[in-house]
């Protein structure tokens, strides 16, 4: 049976190095299978985060040969011949080995003002398929945070994390903005507090999305356009001033009352 050398980064916040494990190749295996085999034999303490092993939960993101991938959906036989290198996502602080501290994303999630729908009529809301489809695309997001990982605004500039929500949350803002029931207006918040303007549309996020969400074209660009509309449309401006716009202006971390 032929073998493959896995170069896996091992260490913690204090530093680390690559360790090489040579394992048998088995038909149809994905990178996560190989990691599991190494855990079960040579290195029971090799840290790796995973859950569903079916591309649905987004837990096992790492960088395989330098590219962000879900380890459970990356087949070994589709990688180039030679050693396979596995490293943790670069943008987030290391906990141990392949596991990173992704709490930045959860902190950003807490700052998204909730949906504000009108009261529900008897027998449920009426919404049409074409109106929910735009939001449904963004709700496919499995929160693997690979888009956040590759976004150079925070990958290369740690200091931007304080004022930049990142692509995962721009699709969330876009989803709520396009939600047929929502009455909140988060455009100013997205632009002024969440750093939408920092995104210069390099589409790195879209390229790595395992759900093939068109993050830049379908979420970020339309969101930027809506921000511009809100800013320069004198009617919308007046509406905001006299607080009679169709949407309520939501602020950072504003917690909405339960409907």
């Amino acid at each position: 049976m032929s073998q493959v050398s896995m170069r896996i980064w091992r260490g913690d916040a204090n530093g680390g190095d690559f360790e090489t494990y040579t394992v048998d190749k088995q038909e149809g295996e994905v990178v996560l299978d190989v990691i599991h085999r190494i855990q079960a034999t040579e290195a029971p303490d090799l840290a790796c985060r995973w859950n569903c092993k079916a591309g649905k939960c987004g837990s096992c993101a790492a960088e395989v040969n330098g590219k962000p991938r879900l380890m459970c959906m990356t087949r070994m036989d589709q990688l180039p011949e030679g050693d396979v290198t596995v490293t943790p996502m670069k943008t987030f602080p290391i906990i141990r080995d392949l596991v990173t501290d992704v709490s930045f994303n959860y902190a950003m999630a807490e700052r998204v003002p909730a949906l504000l729908p009108p009261p529900m009529p008897e027998g449920g809301y009426r919404m049409f398929q074409e109106d929910v489809e735009r939001g449904q695309e963004f709700r496919k997001c499995i929160e693997c945070f690979m888009c956040q990982n590759v976004c150079h605004v925070i990958r290369d500039h740690e200091e931007n994390k304080a004022h930049y929500a990142g692509p995962r949350f721009f699709i969330r803002y876009a989803e709520l903005e396009m939600h047929p029931l929502d009455q909140n207006d988060r455009r100013e918040l997205a632009q002024e507090v969440m750093g939408l303007g920092y995104c210069n549309i390099t589409k790195c996020c879209t390229e790595v999305c395992p759900e093939h969400i068109k993050i830049t074209d379908n979420a970020i660009i339309p969101l930027k356009e809506r921000v511009v509309d809100a800013k320069y449309d004198p009617v919308a401006w007046l509406g905001r001033k006299i607080r009679r716009g169709s949407k309520r202006s939501a602020t950072d971390a504003q917690v909405q009352p339960a409907p």
């Binding site: 709700r139 709520l176 939600h179």
Partner: peptide, 11 residues
């Protein structure tokens, strides 16, 4: 749906 779920719709 009041909390944001977007189910598929009938015509």
């Amino acid at each position: 749906e009041q909390w944001g779920a977007l189910f598929d719709r009938t015509p």
